[in-house]
Design a protein around this nucleic acid. Sequence first.
DNA 1: AAGTACTGGCTAATTTGATTAGCTTTAGAC
DNA 2: GTCTAAAGCTAATCAAATTAGCCAGTACTT
Lengths: 204, 204
Amino acid sequence: MPRAGLTAAAVTEAAAALVDEVGFDQLGMGLVAERLGVKTPSLYKHVTGQTDLAHRIAILAMNQCADAIRDATQGRAGTEALARGAQAMRTFVKAHPGRYAAANAARPTGPDDPLIDALNRVVDSWAAMLHGYRIDPDQQIHALRMLRTVLHGFASLEVAGGFQFATDIDDSFTWMIDFIDHGLQETTATPTTSALSPAGPHRA
Amino acid sequence: MPRAGLTAAAVTEAAAALVDEVGFDQLGMGLVAERLGVKTPSLYKHVTGQTDLAHRIAILAMNQCADAIRDATQGRAGTEALARGAQAMRTFVKAHPGRYAAANAARPTGPDDPLIDALNRVVDSWAAMLHGYRIDPDQQIHALRMLRTVLHGFASLEVAGGFQFATDIDDSFTWMIDFIDHGLQETTATPTTSALSPAGPHRA
DNA sequence: AAGTACTGGCTAATTTGATTAGCTTTAGAC
DNA sequence: GTCTAAAGCTAATCAAATTAGCCAGTACTT
């Protein structure tokens, strides 16, 4: 009987494809093994267990997501980079809902977890997109967190089927990104006082 | 041997308290039973199983969240309602991370699932908050989705420990809400052309 | 080409946790 | 006081992950 010739990476790929189809919460060693034409215990020669496998899917997902964003924003800046980066992110998540869910569920195991590097690659891409906006350095961190919040929030809600009417969702997304874009431009252009805090964040 | 006097609601409450402490992914019938001073199989007299229990936690969570937002925004409008409602939401999620996670994981079982009502109560609150902004009816849906996106995204990232530096997170949140508030005011005030689409969403 | 060590995959056994079956006794109605 | 429906219990069942230990295929040496 010939061998399957598996490897940790191959198992991870198969599992990632699986969760994209059946949902992350349906991940099981049995299903992965079946898909690879192998018996369940064989998987343990390549991954230490289901937890490890989920963690590997998360790393794969974040790196692929980072690649997609990088490719989409290469050589662009400001508004255009934001629009393309955001679209790339959303497209990736819609195409790979299961591995995105895995990425959200994963927790770094330590300070040198490759998952952290992968996450940082994504965040760095967004930080780069913001450079085109000449934002006050003090506000960079807040703008970056808002970007993460918005992109993660939208992807997360959409994947979870959180939006009632499937129609118009594309419109809502571009509307939202446009809203952010306008606001970011005003952040530097128009000193304003805030109604929420005495000296609002929109000051230049 | 006296009875524990349990009920479906009591089991749900105990389970909700449990997941807030140990995390939603640690939910288990054994832990819930132990906390109630009862043997595991006894729980099945009140809930049909773990899936049902998680679903009940989700409904409880959404209703409590809706209550919190309603109480915080009663009689307020516009900027103030937005600021208070958003803070109420965030406060609730930080106090009850486990049940919020349960709410995110839950899927409605049918068209008349109480979970849908609970979700709608939250969304309605936000829609009410937006009324203070005199937004073009065509854009209401987009603004509402943005609000959901932002509030859910932030809560979700924060609960997951997604923000690296714990300091400044309060500042980031108010900054972000302030950013949204300014943008929403401009949405009606300043007709603008969009860089992303020929006729942008910021038109009046 | 044969020998050999390593490694991948298998079967069988173990463990953990959810769920079900069936019994016993309480709490409330009459 | 008795009677009935339901609450809680113990014991049994089921499903899925994981572990133990065996055997064969691969690759490397000579």
